[in-house]
Design a binder for these strands. Structure first.
Lengths: 335, 335
DNA sequence: CTGTTAGCGCGTTCAC
DNA sequence: GTGAACGCGCTAACAG
C-alpha cells in the first residue's frame, strides 16, 4: 500500500540508498547541499514515508506494545485506552489492540497472539489476573491495570478502591440509615469488587455478608425476579431508612431500573451512592453521589511504567509494585 | 520478550529449523514419527509461539490493519472499535490503534504513522474527511466510518442520519409544537451534523436557519452564557409550546444542564428528543425519546468491507460506495 | 562527498 | 531429513 521505498527515492535522486538513509536520519554532513535539497524536494513531492518496521528491524529496536482489555464496551475502558494511547504517542510507541469481551478464553488467545508478535511489552486490563496464562508472563515487560492478582507478581495500577468506598460509606453511616447494603455483580474473587466491598464493611462494621446484595451480570429484570424481589423485600419494611452503595455505574443502573419498576424513588424512599462517575449522574434529579476515578491516569501511568521497565533493560524480574491512583468524592443529593 | 525461536526448538530437538517449520505447518510427511512426537513435546513444554511477523515476512503476507478514531472518549466510539475488533479476530487480522483526540493535526500524524507501518489497510473514523491527507489515501485499502467526505472517493459506512431524524421530528411535529429547534455543535461542514439537520428541516419545512441553535463544543455554562441566554429567551415566551431535537447525547446533556439551571423541566415545560441512545436515557424520569444507532455494526461492516477489498487484490481503485446502517426509533415520554 | 554491501529478525521452502 | 537462500526496507561500516 505504500508504493515508495528508500530504493525508489534513491533512484529518483540518482544517489544511493545510503545517502537517502543519511538524509532521513539528519546526517547531512555526509552529502552536498545540492543532493540534500534534491532529496528534500523529492521526498516531500512523493510523500515518501520510511517504514518504521524496517527501521526497527535494522536498528534492532522495537517500539510497539500490545494491549488487551477485558471489555471495550465498559465505559471505564475508553479513558484507560486514551491514557495509554496518549503516552504511546509521546514515547513514539505504537499499540496493537485486542478486546477480550469479558471472556477468559479470549483473553488467553489475545495475550498469546500479542506475544507472537514482536511486541516489546504488554498492558493488560485482565478478565482474570489469577489465570494460568499470567504465570507465563514476566514482570520485565508487563503491566496490569485495574484488577489485581492475588499472586502479585506483576506491576499493577489500581484505584483507591477500599479507602474511597470506606470514606463514602462513612458519610452514609452518619445519616442514620437503619440498614446499608452493598450491591455488586458476583464477587467471583474479582479484586475491584472485593476491595470495594471491604471498604463498605470497614465503614459499616457489618460482620457477615447479609448486607451484600448480588445482582447477576447482564441481569434481565423481565426473566429473573430474584434481585428485584430482594430489593422489594428490603424497601418494603416499614419505618426503616435504607441506603445502597453500588459497586459501579452499571450496577447502579440495574438498581434504579428495579426501584423504578417498584415505584420507589431514590433520595426520598432510600439513599444511594455509587462507585464511578458519569455525566448523566449529575443530570438525574436529584444528583447522584459518586466516586470519580481517574481512568485516564490509570492508562497513562501504565504506559509510563511499562516504558521505563522496557527501556531500563533489566535482566531479572523486578519485584512487583502496586500503584494506587487516587479518587475523588462527589457529594450530591442522592443520600 | 519471547525467548524461544525456531532455532532454539531445532537445537533442543536436534533437528534442523526446516523440520520444525514443517512440523509447525502440519507437514508431517517430511519427518519420522519420533521427531514428530519429540517436537510436539518440546513445543508444548517451552510454550514456543512462532512469530507471525516473521511468518508474514517469509510468506509475503500482511494481516494487520490500522485504525484511527476521532475521539476515543466519545461514547459512540467504543462499540465501533468493538465491531472492528470482533471481525479482526474472526479474520485473523491484528489491529494497530490510534486516537486523534478530535485534533486534525493529530489525525494526519496518525494516518501517516499507520501508513509507515506495514499495514494492509486502514479504517478511519475521521476528524475531517475533507482534509488534504485523504487525497493521499487510496480506496483500494481504506474504509471511512461515520463522517462522510464531500469528495466521496473512499468507501464509507454511515448511519441513517437524515431519514431517522426526519421521521422522529415528524412525530414531534404531530404534537402541535409552536416552535421546534434543532440543537447542534457548530455544523462546521461535518456531515453527520448537516445530515441530521437536513432531516429536521425536511420534517419541519422551516426555510432559514432561525430554528437552528448552536452550542459551542465543550460548552462551559459558567463562563459563557450565550447558549443559555438563547434557550432562556425561547422558553420564556408565554403560551408557546417548544420542542428541541438534539444532535447527539452530549448536546442533549448541555441542553439539560442549561434548562435545569433555568428551572425548566423537559416533558412538562418543553419537549425533547435526541440522536444516539444510552442506557441512562431510560433511567431519567420521564424517559427520553431517542434514535438508537448500531455503532457495533458500523465497525463490524467496516472491517468486513476492508477485508474484502484487500483480499480481492484489485489493481485500480474501485468506485466509492456508501453503506447505510439502519437506526431504530425509541419513543418514550420526553415529548 | 558518495556508493557498495552485509547485515537485522525469524520462518519458509527448494534443491539435495 | 538438512543447508541455505530468501522475503522485507532500512542502517551503517567500509571503501573509494
Amino acid at each position: 500500500m505504500n508504493k515508495f521505498t528508500i530504493k525508489d527515492i534513491a533512484k529518483l535522486a540518482n544517489v544511493s540508498t545510503a545517502t537517502v538513509s543519511y538524509f532521513l536520519n539528519g546526517n547531512y554532513a555526509k552529502m552536498s547541499i545540492n543532493t540534500r535539497r534534491k532529496l528534500a524536494d523529492i521526498i516531500s513531492k512523493t510523500n515518501y514515508l520510511p517504514s518504521t518496521t524496517a527501521r526497527n528491524l535494522a536498528k534492532n529496536e522495537n517500539k510497539t506494545i500490545g494491549v488487551s482489555v477485558a471489555d471495550i464496551t465498559n465505559p471505564f475502558t475508553s479513558p484507560v485506552i486514551s491514557g495509554i494511547s496518549e503516552r504511546c504517542e509521546q514515547y513514539g510507541y505504537k499499540m496493537v489492540f485486542t478486546n477480550s469481551n469479558n471472556d477468559e478464553r479470549r483473553e488467553i488467545e489475545n495475550i498469546n497472539r500479542l506475544r507472537q508478535e514482536e511486541v516489546a511489552g504488554l498492558i493488560i486490563d485482565p478478565v482474570n489476573p489469577d489465570g494460568d496464562i499470567y504465570n507465563q508472563l514476566s514482570n520485565l515487560y508487563t503491566v496490569i491495570v485495574d484488577r489485581q492478582s492475588k499472586r502479585n507478581l506483576i506491576d499493577t495500577i489500581v484505584t483507591d478502591n477500599t479507602k474511597s468506598v470506606s470514606e463514602m460509606t462513612a458519610k452514609m453511616v452518619q445519616k442514620d440509615y437503619d440498614d446499608l447494603y452493598f450491591i455488586s455483580w458476583p464477587l467471583d474473587e474479582v479484586s475491584t469488587r472485593i476491595h470495594r466491598y471491604t471498604g463498605f464493611q470497614q465503614a459499616t462494621h457489618y460482620a457477615g455478608d447479609d448486607h451484600l446484595l448480588i445482582v447477576p451480570y447482564n441481569y434481565d429484570l423481565t426473566t429473573d425476579t430474584s434481585f428485584k424481589d430482594e430489593v422489594s423485600q428490603i424497601l418494603g419494611q416499614t419505618n426503616k431508612k435504607i441506603g445502597f452503595f453500588t459497586m459501579n455505574s452499571r450496577v447502579l443502573q440495574e438498581l434504579l431500573k428495579v426501584t423504578q419498576s417498584l415505584a420507589y424513588n431514590y433520595a426520598s424512599d432510600f439513599g444511594v451512592a455509587t462507585y464511578e462517575e458519569f455525566e448523566w449522574m449529575q443530570l438525574m434529579r436529584p444528583g447522584i453521589s459518586c466516586i470519580r476515578q481517574d481512568s485516564f491516569a490509570i492508562g497513562y501511568s501504565a504506559m509510563e511504567m511499562l516504558k521505563n521497565k522496557i527501556e531500563s533493560k533489566l535482566t531479572s524480574e523486578p519485584k512487583a509494585k502496586i500503584k494506587v491512583i487516587p479518587t475523588k468524592e462527589i457529594i450530591r443529593e442522592s443520600f
